[in-house]
C-alpha cells in the first residue's frame, strides 16, 4: 500500500537541521514523506505548536534536537523532551496514538542518523496510517507554512 503520510520534522538549527543537510550532501536516501522545518532550538517548541501541527492534519511529528548535554542553549532539548512527553499524554487523552510524535537526539555530524530516524518515523507513521484529523492537502500545506513562518520569526529575531 502506498504510504502518503506526512511527517513533520521539527529540526534544531544547530544539529538536526545541519545533519539533514549533511544527509543530503552524502546523497543518503530517506522517505519523501518528511517535511523539514527549521527551529531555533527544540526548547522553543511549545506543546501547542506540536498540537497545531496535528490540528492542521499532519500524520506524525518528529522533534530532533541536540545530544543531551550538547544544547546550544544548555537545556532546550531537555525541556523539549518533557514537553513532547506531555504532548503524548494529551494525544492519548483525546484518542490519537501517542506514537505519532517522538523526540530524537543527534549531533550535526550525524547525517546517516538523520536518514535513519526519518526512515524509522516514516515507517512507523505508515503503519499507523493517515491521521483521522487529516485535512485537505491545501490546508495542510498552508498550515506547515504558517508553522515555519512562526519559527522563522524567532530565527529572524535572533539575528538582530
Amino acid at each position: 500500500m502506498k504510504n502518503d503520510t506526512i511527517v513533520l520534522a521539527l529540526c534544531c538549527h544547530y544539529c538536526a537541521y545541519a545533519a539533514a543537510d549533511m544527509a543530503g550532501s552524502m546523497r543518503l536516501q530517506y522517505p519523501p514523506n518528511i517535511r523539514v522545518l527549521r527551529m531555533p532550538c527544540t526548547g522553543k517548541i511549545e506543546e501547542n505548536y506540536v498540537l497545531s501541527a496535528f490540528e492542521y492534519g499532519v500524520d506524525g511529528v518528529m522533534v530532533a534536537g541536540c545530544l543531551e548535554g550538547g544544547c546550544h542553549y544548555l537545556e532546550g532539548n531537555l525541556r523539549a523532551r518533557k514537553r513532547i512527553e506531555r504532548v503524548k499524554g494529551i494525544l492519548e487523552e483525546i484518542g490519537l496514538e501517542p506514537e505519532r510524535v517522538e523526540m530524537f537526539n543527534l549531533s550535526s555530524a550525524e547525517g546517516p542518523r538523520f536518514a535513519e530516524i526519518s526512515t524509522e518515523m516514516c515507517e512507523r507513521i505508515g503503519k499507523l496510517g493517515p491521521s483521522p484529523l487529516r485535512a485537505d492537502r491545501s490546508r495542510l500545506k498552508a498550515g506547515i507554512e504558517e508553522l515555519q513562518a512562526e519559527a522563522d520569526a524567532v530565527l529572524e529575531g535572533e539575528k538582530r
Binding site: N48, L51, E55, I94, G95, L96, P132, L133
Partner: peptide, 11 residues
C-alpha cells in the same frame, strides 16, 4: 483549545 477541537473532530 487545540486538544479539545481535535477531540471533538475525532468523535
Amino acid at each position: 483549545g487545540s486538544a479539545l477541537r481535535m477531540s471533538l473532530k475525532l468523535i
